[in-house]
Design a binder for these strands. Sequence first.
DNA 1: CGAAAAGTTGACTAAATAGACAGCTATTGA
DNA 2: TCAATAGCTGTCTATTTAGTCAACTTTTCG
Lengths: 212, 212
Amino acid sequence: MSKKIARGPYKPGRIRAQSRDLILQAALAEFACHGFRGTTMQRIAEAAQVPKANIHYYFSNKLGLYGAVLENTLNLWDAVFNEISDHDEPADVLSSYIDAKIEFSRTHPKASRLFAKEMISGAPHLSAYLQQDYRLWFKQRMSIFESWIAQGKMDNVAPAHVIFMIWASTQYYADFEPQILIATDTKTVSEQAFLDAAESIKHIILKGCGIR
Amino acid sequence: MSKKIARGPYKPGRIRAQSRDLILQAALAEFACHGFRGTTMQRIAEAAQVPKANIHYYFSNKLGLYGAVLENTLNLWDAVFNEISDHDEPADVLSSYIDAKIEFSRTHPKASRLFAKEMISGAPHLSAYLQQDYRLWFKQRMSIFESWIAQGKMDNVAPAHVIFMIWASTQYYADFEPQILIATDTKTVSEQAFLDAAESIKHIILKGCGIR
DNA sequence: CGAAAAGTTGACTAAATAGACAGCTATTGA
DNA sequence: TCAATAGCTGTCTATTTAGTCAACTTTTCG
């Protein structure tokens, strides 16, 4: 451990070494798998291959580290949330969103699992982060769905439940991977399986909502 | 704590007092919320209102207790799994199954969450329990779907993904309750919300699969 | 009844854990 | 070059935790 990176003018707490990223990455893996209380600083240190004391150099304490990991994760979510506002036709909007969500599950399974663990535990550390934007996003999408229904572009299905169904179905492929592996008797969920999943979900959601 | 129950002929480890159920119930709540490692025997003891040492009278150790809780939970799942073999028409079969799954989410949210936590953690303690029956059940349903497709009773959608979609959508209402509460800005998920969810899921899945 | 077993518990122990801290090395910028 | 600071780490400590144990109370059944 003797890697350093270029550093700008001295501003305490601004620019940090690579170790910080190693720690965040290892912490995400551990927290996603064992939750906040179930994760030990020692295990994170071992996974990141840094001494435990080094973690406490970059993060005030365990909760601080967890908060940093959560924040990283939520920024990733936001990117997917906002990636769908260009199109107008329900079929295009939902298709893109489902594709983006499935792709997120494939490329960021740990982030998805961390989020899921938080939710299942009652979101004890999450409320502070989302509250504001989250509801706004949800309400806006709800009203878009309602206008589509009014225009006869889709069936009169409760918009909230459609959104929940999309979230549930797409996140499932990251969060419940073992269940998929056991059921399908395979070792890994292939990229093709993710693509197939996206196709099936799109078919069922679009046709099921009477779109197009 | 001085309640006892009627006991049969003396067979060590056969018939146990009410405390055992209290402990199992408290343990389910704690494990479902904090996972295996994140749960302490002390907290379970407090929740069950028994001394910690009493837990170790009924259960060999923490893992033994967790195993007992898991087994209880999986027995509940099995009941739902097998509750759908009477009907023949896809619409009836899927409707009943979705209703049963949503009802399970409503009445046994903790069991659902415990199961979800296990899956997200990589199912470290679960493999031993299901493996056998689980795949069989899955394969049987898959072939039923395939025969429906062959008979033109439903669209050619990959059966596995349909099942995953039903599992994901129905379990979501138990596992991700906080996400629902935040999104819909409510305090609790009402029974009516569960019924609405079931209706929406049934509508989308059935129509989406081209059934009836 | 009364001995034996079931059921219960407070007090203890060994291990694990979060975090503190003093001292070390490497890098910076004047 | 060199002092100041960033970056790093071995060691220690107070606390929490799983699990033990011996002693206690209640129930069973001959």
